[in-house]
Design a protein around this nucleic acid. Sequence first.
DNA 1: TGATGGAACGGAACGGTTTCGTACCGTTCT
DNA 2: AGAACGGTACGAAACCGTTCCGTTCCATCA
Lengths: 200, 200
Amino acid sequence: MSPQAKETGTDSPQRPRVEGEREQEILDATLAILAEVGYDLLTMDKVAAAARASKATLYRRWKGKPELVIEALLAHKGEHPAPDTGTLRGDLIASFCGAGGMTDPQQMAIMGSLITAISRDADFAEVFRRDFIGPKAARTLQLFERARDRGEIDEDVDLEIVIPALPGILLHRQFLLGEEPTDDVITRVVDQVILPAVTR
Amino acid sequence: MSPQAKETGTDSPQRPRVEGEREQEILDATLAILAEVGYDLLTMDKVAAAARASKATLYRRWKGKPELVIEALLAHKGEHPAPDTGTLRGDLIASFCGAGGMTDPQQMAIMGSLITAISRDADFAEVFRRDFIGPKAARTLQLFERARDRGEIDEDVDLEIVIPALPGILLHRQFLLGEEPTDDVITRVVDQVILPAVTR
DNA sequence: TGATGGAACGGAACGGTTTCGTACCGTTCT
DNA sequence: AGAACGGTACGAAACCGTTCCGTTCCATCA
């Protein structure tokens, strides 16, 4: 290795090539492959072909497959601010039906593609839960806390149990029962399961 | 292929070697590997090594990996009759905490190992849902129908929504949140989510 | 302005490993 | 004896990580 300085340290852009746009294309291609075949069957060759990049480029930029996939996941977190419709019911339906919610096909495909991997790889699971699940859970928690402040939720309700119920029910219907989540199903689950659990 | 009859049809074993016990050992080994590494990374070599069988034997008996895995799943449905404690609450807790329930580690590992595969392979998904999920769902349905006959469930409750809620919540907590399902969690979910949904 | 050097790129190939499905053994049980 | 078994080995294919090559783009400088 040449003893070249690793970086200038300043903000002067010395590396104009794979700076932003091209890198994002590669990450998008990674997510597409991930959603299509799953983590275990995702190969660097497939990603390179889909992104029209060479494997050499991938390995110049990323250490390997886990690092590439994780960075692709983190770069994907599009801003989805929590809705504020004034009622818990409206917030839940808006949140889970909208962009990034349970009706987003690629979002759901990514979920399904990763469950097996995180069941086996503890390190992968930790990053996934912290950086992918965490923000979503925090947003949903916000909805419930606002509802509690408005008095919509009984005092003795254990939010730790109730909050994850909605995504759990919907994911189960999708993957185990094979039912595409529709707005109608989400509404029925909210009305018949979630709301009765918080207001008795 | 020779036009041989697929099987005798009777229970007379024409194949004395790999007939019953040995075959079950291979299927058990298949399930163990499946639970350990998942469907995509399960290989015939791993199964052969784990079962101390030769790959030739596997290919003599099964056509390939999908057939072997599916048959292993079907042969695994140990008889788990629905409990009858007299109350819906007792039945649910007994059913989901007991053998074959959500606290069975291998059962859960198999679930996680298959979700990615059934998200991609429609044929595999159909067999899995019909022969693996189906019996479990039917058993749970039986619990709810008995409870409804006893008057424990309001008339306007949509069982299609409520019944899959409990497994959904528990699976989500296990795989997405990384929480081992304990009897205590199952009880709290039943008391705080399921029962309020059926009796308002 | 025009030429030059360097860095990053795409494409291709490499060796080493893994998997699959099959074939060939010697052994064991009926 | 004969059939089925376990073990081994094989070729084909896929994958991984690396390393070539030739090209393209950019910054620098005459």
